[in-house]
Design a protein around this nucleic acid. Sequence first.
DNA 1: CTTCATGGTATCGTTTAGGATACTATACCA
DNA 2: TGGTATAGTATCCTAAACGATACCATGAAG
Lengths: 126, 126
Amino acid sequence: MEETPSCRVETALEILTGKWKPSILLELITHGTLRFSELKRNLPNITQKMLTAQLRELELNDIVHREIYQVVPPRVEYSLTDYGKTLIPVLNAINAWGEKHVEHLAQKDMLQDTTPTLTSSTSDSF
Amino acid sequence: MEETPSCRVETALEILTGKWKPSILLELITHGTLRFSELKRNLPNITQKMLTAQLRELELNDIVHREIYQVVPPRVEYSLTDYGKTLIPVLNAINAWGEKHVEHLAQKDMLQDTTPTLTSSTSDSF
DNA sequence: CTTCATGGTATCGTTTAGGATACTATACCA
DNA sequence: TGGTATAGTATCCTAAACGATACCATGAAG
């Protein structure tokens, strides 16, 4: 028996969370289409197992499209679906807040300890 | 040694994720100020340990304010900080996408299986 | 006949998140 | 003297996420 969620924030966060999903999405947003091996190369610390698993989850949620070419050695390409692209503005909003948050914490810390801080400039993309 | 994150999406998601954080934030957004015991009452399945832990994390990130009254029995009130309130539009964006996602998956499923679906109406709040 | 590249799966171990339960301090009230 | 309420801690345990490593199928190139 599942609980009725009080809102859909959890629903959306389920899709975004996972140690590698934001990075994978960022790759696909900035590069458009990538082979499995290209994704793996660009995400140096991910294991094959995790990459496969996270891509499968994103595929299940209709966020990414998986295109298989019947050749040897295999060629499999991943890209955002049109629906997946509706996530981009949401990710931008999250990213923008994240940038502000880094600044905010830096300012707060400056008031009470000696850790040197850098000011980062906000931008609209990530 | 930590990795340099490719963007600030992870930074922001760290604050929002955790099994109870969205619910806690929703409570504080809709009720303003709540005592520990009121939060616990409104979140029927949370354990005291988890409620304390999540509130502490939110407090560390300057999202919630903890006000202690030196009385017996103790009275501790939680509320969003002004800075914490800057999360509200972000949460609204996430929630709105989540609502669309529920609809989207329902439509996708209708095309291929027999599970009955409900149409949910989108709204601006959560 | 062997080697290579690709895109995986299978199995196992570790690490982290979360949960159950018991315990605490304090002062008031009966 | 003992019970009550509040806001916690402390301890232990389970389950889920994540990681390391080994294995697999295919067909072309050498």
